[in-house]
Simulated assay, not measured.
Amino acid sequence: MTAPTTPATQHIAVDVVRDVAVLTLDRPEKLNALTVAMRRRLAALVREFGTGRRVRGIVLTGRGRAFSAGEDLTQAPTTEAEVHEAFESFHDVTRAVLETRVPVIAAVNGLAVGGASEITLCCDARVGTEATEYFQPENARGLTISNATSLLLRRLVGNHALRMVIGSERIGSAEALRIGLLDEVVEPGALVERAVDTVRAWTPQGGTTALHLALLRPRTAEVEAAFEREDRAAHEAWTSGLLTAGVAGFWNTKQTEETTA
C-alpha cells in the first residue's frame, strides 16, 4: 500500500506582506526539496498573484537553512514519461514567472541546489545573505539543466555559467554578488523585508512597471527554444542510461556517507 502524500499546499506557505505576496518553500526537514506537485503548485501561485490585481509583486524564499535542495530524488523519474513530466513542471515555473505583470524577487536564504537554483534565474532580482550558496551538481549525476538555464544563466553571468554547470563549482554569496548572480547581500533577518522593499520601490503608483518587465525580460521564443534544447538533452540522458546511473550513484554515495558517519 502506498503511503499517503502530504498535499503540496502544506509545502508552500503563502503570506501577504505590505501588499507583496511572499511564497515560502516550506519543507525544511527535506531542505525544501521540490516534488512535481510542489512545482505545479508554485507555478499556479505565481500565476494567481502575478496578475497584479491583488498584490504589487511576489517574493520567493525558503524556510530553514536551505532555499531548496532542488529536485526531490526520492521521487526521481523511473520512465521517460516521468522525465518529461519532471522537466515540464520545472519549465512551467519559469513560464509563470516570466508571464507576470509584477516583479518577482528571489530571497535566497541559504543553499540553492540544481533545479531550485535555476528557478531563481528567471526572477527579476536575487537577494541573498552570507549563507546563500549556489550549487549545480547535475553534470556529475547524469542529470541535465532545465528552467531555460541554458539561456538565463549565461544572460546573468556570461562564461561563469560553464564552471557553474560543467564544473559544478559551489558559488558562495560573495562570489555570486561579484559575478552578478546575486543583486544584493543583506543580513539574514532583513532578507525578506529587503525583497519586499525592492518590489515596492519598483512599483510606483501609476507607473509602467508591467510594460517595462515585458521589455526587459527575455523573449518567449528564446525561452521556449531553450526548453526544447534542454528537453532533448534530458531525453538523451535518459535513453543513454546516464540519468538512472547518476541517481543510483547519488544514493549509494549518500548511504556510504551515512554508514561511515
Results as ranks from 00 to 15, higher is better:
residue 67 F to D: 05
residue 83 V to T: 05
residue 78 T to P: 05
residue 155 R to N: 12
residue 87 F to P: 01
residue 132 T to S: 14
residue 131 A to R: 12
residue 155 R to P: 04
residue 42 L to Y: 05
residue 62 G to A: 13
residue 155 R to D: 13
residue 149 T to H: 06
residue 134 Y to V: 07
residue 49 F to R: 10
residue 96 A to T: 07
residue 101 R to L: 09
residue 109 N to C: 13
residue 146 S to V: 05
residue 123 C to K: 09
residue 113 V to W: 03
residue 74 T to P: 00
residue 74 T to M: 11
residue 95 R to H: 06
residue 49 F to I: 11
residue 52 G to C: 06
residue 159 N to E: 15
residue 42 L to V: 09
residue 120 T to P: 02
residue 122 C to V: 12
residue 110 G to W: 06
residue 138 E to I: 08
residue 42 L to W: 05
residue 80 E to N: 11
residue 150 S to Q: 07
residue 43 A to M: 12
residue 116 A to Y: 04
residue 35 T to N: 01
residue 42 L to Q: 05
residue 127 V to Q: 07
residue 103 P to E: 07
residue 145 I to D: 00
residue 38 M to S: 07
residue 39 R to H: 01
residue 74 T to I: 03
residue 107 A to D: 01
residue 149 T to C: 13
residue 112 A to M: 06
residue 145 I to Y: 02
residue 157 V to Q: 05
residue 126 R to I: 08
residue 54 R to M: 09
residue 113 V to N: 07
residue 102 V to N: 02
residue 154 R to M: 04
residue 129 T to V: 11
residue 152 L to I: 02
residue 135 F to V: 03
residue 145 I to G: 04
residue 151 L to I: 05
residue 39 R to E: 09
residue 88 E to I: 06
residue 146 S to W: 00
residue 54 R to D: 14
residue 84 H to M: 13
residue 151 L to K: 04
residue 59 V to C: 07
